[in-house]
């Protein structure tokens, strides 16, 4: 930078540079924080871009109606599959055990929707043609609302589902006689 060679100009230049350095440090700190969180905490974006044909969801593949809901995996974790469509989620009530790693797999059958479980970090867009994957763990039992968070045309205001977090033994008991669970019926 070239400014007038004067004493006050020099001082100004020095202060400017110091402030610029401070700014750069702030930014480095922020980026470092994001990287640190990415390494040490599980909340990171889904690892893979998965595509799927939204027009045949109801006929074939993992998002067929009878395969939706919560599934107990061999490793003890739970996979929840859900479909969003104008203007509901299926299952309209999701049931999950507490203190268990949950993998949520969801997609849209028509337009862009969003899935947000209140009081949690579960929050993802559902774009037709792509599968959204998010992991979660619920630490307390109780009920959460799960509204659609993206405008999906005129019935958007009526698109609310529920999530019930229940005790693990209760969930396991339910899972022993049914392979896909929900609290919709």
């Amino acid at each position: 930078m070239s400014v007038e060679k004067s004493a006050s100009g020099d001082v100004a230049l020095k202060i400017e540079r110091r402030w610029a350095a401070v700014s750069i440090l702030i930014i480095a700190f922020l980026t470092g924080m994001a990287a640190y969180a990415g390494i040490h905490q599980a909340v990171m974006p889904q690892t893979t871009v998965e595509i799927i044909n939204p027009t045949t969801l109801h006929m074939t593949g993992e998002f067929i109606e009878s395969n939706l809901g919560s599934a107990l995996e061999p490793d003890g974790s739970v996979t929840v599959r859900a479909v969003a469509q104008q203007y509901s989620f299926t299952p309209a009530c999701i049931v999950v055990p507490k203190d268990t790693p949950i993998t949520l797999r969801a997609t849209s059958a028509d337009v862009v929707h969003g899935l947000l479980i209140q009081q949690t970090n579960v929050n993802t867009m559902l774009v037709p043609g792509y599968v959204s994957v998010q992991t979660a763990k619920f630490e307390e039992t109780g009920e959460h609302l799960m509204p659609c968070q993206e405008f999906c045309s005129v019935g958007h205001e009526g698109m609310w589902a529920k999530v019930q977090v229940i005790d693990k033994p209760q969930f396991l008991a339910m899972a022993s006689n049914k392979r896909r669970l929900s609290c919709a019926e």
Binding site: A20, S23, I24, I26, I27, L30, T31, A34, A35, G38, M44, P45, Q46, T47, V49, E50, T107, G114, N123, T124, M125, L126, V127, G129, Y130, V131, S132, V133
Partner: peptide, 24 residues
Amino acid sequence: TFADPQVGAGFKFIHSAFTAVVAL
């Protein structure tokens, strides 16, 4: 598009880092 399924996690991070720079 952090919460979108059609963008890879790597590019989300790259854009996140550049977003920090825009604060400069």
